[in-house]
Amino acid sequence: MRFFAVMITVLVAAAMGPMAIASAAPITLVALGDSLTAGYGLPPGDGFPDKLQAALKARGHDVIVIDAGVSGDTTSGGLSRLNWSVGEKADGVILELGANDALRGIRPQETRRNLAAMLEQLKARGLPVLLAGMIAPPNMGPQYEREFNPIYPDLAEEYGARLYPFFLDGVAGTPALNQSDGMHPTSEGVDVIVSRILPDVEALIAEITAPEARKD
């Protein structure tokens, strides 16, 4: 009897082996954004996705952060490449787009439509989203600010996305944390961004790993 009990245990363990391996697969986050995500002007490894991944791993998360940032991209560009930028292996998305819309004076209504379309598609795919907000530059004027700045909180509430109000929080306007153009963060600036957004990314991971959110 003891022999058969041992054999049954071995067979069950062998059968569950592949399932255990599958369940241990790392979480894949896609950082879909512009030059702020792509690490414009920074050496390899100093961009937002790489530093975020390192910070998450240091906190015990088995996570891969994919860099889907394209310098100069607008919300229109992000929408046009959404399907191939966010592949089938994605478990969640950090959506960071809109800064170039504001810099180019694109109508806020268009920015809103593009972001809404992206959130709609990601929601339909069952992908949790952390929406990284932007703020219109002061030189665009108060009317533009009134139309642009509410886009992110409005859409986060409408589509049930997690909101990080301002991606450059703690960095914008601080010369020591920005490159000579005054718009793109230095490596130290990226460190500040990562440290501030990290709790929200961990909340996104918790949402992904919740039992009701697990993929079949």
Rank of each mutant, 00 (worst) to 15 (best):
L82E: 00
N83K: 06
V93Q: 00
L198V: 06
F3S: 13
L103D: 00
N100S: 04
V129R: 00
I21W: 14
G72E: 11
T75F: 12
A54I: 02
Y152F: 15
L168Y: 04
L119A: 03
M16Y: 11
E188M: 01
V129Y: 02
L103M: 13
D181A: 05
L95Y: 05
N114I: 10
Y144N: 05
D46K: 12
I8F: 12
A68E: 04
V63Q: 03
F3T: 14
S23W: 15
L177R: 02
M183Y: 01
N100T: 09
A5N: 06
I135K: 11
A58M: 06
S76A: 08
R113H: 03
T174I: 07
M140I: 11
D216V: 15
A31C: 06
G45P: 11
S85M: 07
R162E: 13
K215I: 15
R146P: 01
T9N: 01
L204P: 08
L29N: 03
M1E: 14
P211M: 13
R104N: 03
M16T: 13
A31G: 05
G170D: 02
T186S: 00
A99R: 00
R146C: 00
G87R: 03
A54T: 11
P43F: 14
G173H: 03
G105E: 01
P175S: 06
G78W: 04
P18W: 05
K51M: 09
S35D: 01
T74Q: 14
V171Y: 01
Q53K: 03
I151H: 05
V63W: 03
L56S: 01
I94W: 02
M7G: 06
D101P: 04
A136E: 01
L82M: 03
M19N: 11
A210G: 12
L130K: 01
T75Y: 09
P211L: 15
A99D: 02
G47H: 09
F167V: 14
I64G: 07
S180W: 05
G41Q: 05
P185R: 03
V86G: 00
A5T: 04
Q179K: 03
G45Q: 09
M16K: 01
G189S: 06
E147F: 08
G45C: 12
H61T: 08
